[in-house]
């Protein structure tokens, strides 16, 4: 198993290399001159030339790529063109917000989605089954911004239970350790901050969770139904095991195998930044940051951000593969 993990980790290197090629050339091969985009159409030839030199754009593409790769290897993504801030610093400020939101959303999605899926499958064709499947259909098809706004109107505006937007109230301060506010406030035993951070994350996380939740519920249900028809489930019943044990031990562990893949995929997607949710709730995450970079034609930032998101995605996928092999003994790990 250890060597399997090692091999999977090593396999990341060529993948990340491939991503860097894609990201770099896609951005540099799009028609249009970044210098011109930055300075505007009326910039003087002299100014454009200076900017090109400054950015290294006058060099052949392979030299530019070589430099990009060399910096990347040192963990340097360059500077954002609009702020002249190091991109790694900007990302380090933003990414934890996205990670925290994604984790919270996945907690909602996995617990509620799997529970709904399991109960639907074990009570196939019951009222619960029908209603949860209708809900999950609504869940995947409901526009996020609409749901977000409705929740805001109900829980913030009318009931006043939850804060309208943001990550934290302005008077609360959290000592930053991981950048995940909930975790940091727990680590520093800062209870008021913990409460404030949790209160802030509930609505955006729930909004963000609806689509993965619905997908997870459907996959869990169909996977459970498939497993419940298997011969080994009949064997488990013939052993005299209670339905609870048959469902949650014998069936669920098998049914989880496809569910895990979906969970990993959805988590990877969320980590890419939820632009809509982050916009509605003014959540200072990577999605919003990347969107602004695109608007500002800040190709360095877009390049760096995309690199990070893509790398995170493949890393999550690798972790899922490892988890998968661990749950499913039929996968040859050696």
């Amino acid at each position: 198993m250890l060597s399997f993990i090692l091999r999977r980790t090593l396999a990341l290197i060529p993948t990340v290399f491939g991503i860097s090629v894609l990201v770099f050339f896609m951005i540099h091969l799009v028609p249009g001159d970044p210098a011109e985009m930055m300075l505007g159409e009326r910039a003087s030839e002299q100014a454009l030339k200076e900017v090109r030199e400054q950015l290294g754009l006058d060099k052949p593409l392979y030299v530019q790529y070589g430099r990009f790769l060399a910096r990347l290897a040192k963990g340097d993504l360059g500077r954002a063109l609009r702020t002249n801030e190091k991109i790694t610093t900007e990302i380090a400020d933003r990414f934890p917000a996205t990670v925290e939101l994604s984790i919270a959303a996945m907690i909602f999605a996995v617990t509620l989605g799997m529970l709904a899926g399991i109960l639907s499958a074990t009570r196939q064709y019951s009222v619960f089954d029908y209603s949860s499947m209708i809900f999950s259909l609504v869940g995947v098809s409901m526009p996020i911004f609409w749901l977000g706004l409705i929740l805001m109107i109900i829980f913030s505006v009318h009931l006043g239970w939850l804060p309208l937007s943001g990550r934290l109230s302005y008077h609360i301060h959290i000592e930053s350790i991981t950048g995940l506010y909930i975790l940091d406030s727990l680590l520093t035993l800062n209870w008021p901050a913990l409460k404030d951070a949790v209160w802030h994350i509930i609505m955006p996380a729930f909004t963000l969770s609806t689509i993965p939740m619905a997908i997870i519920a459907r996959i869990t249900r169909s996977s459970m139904l498939e497993v419940l028809r298997q011969d080994y489930i009949r064997t488990a019943k013939a052993k005299g095991l209670a339905p609870r044990v048959v469902h949650y031990k014998h069936a669920l562990k098998n049914a989880l195998i496809p569910v895990i893949t979906v969970i990993g995929l959805q988590f990877g997607i969320l980590l890419g930044g939820a632009i809509l949710t982050e916009t509605i709730f003014a959540w200072p995450g990577i999605g919003l940051w990347l969107l602004n970079a695109v608007y500002a034609r800040d190709f360095n930032a877009v390049q760096g951000g995309t690199m990070l998101i893509a790398t995170t995605f493949v890393t999550i996928n690798m972790l899922v593969d490892i988890l998968y092999a661990w749950i499913n003994p039929r996968i040859k790990v050696s």
């Binding site: 011969d231 080994y232 064997t235 052993k239 014998h250 562990k253 749950i327 499913n328 003994p329």
Partner: peptide, 15 residues
């Protein structure tokens, strides 16, 4: 107790 027809599928593959 009972023994089934299909030995290939009657045991739970993940235990």
């Amino acid at each position: 107790s009972m023994i089934f027809q299909e030995p290939m599928t009657s045991l739970n593959p993940v235990f």
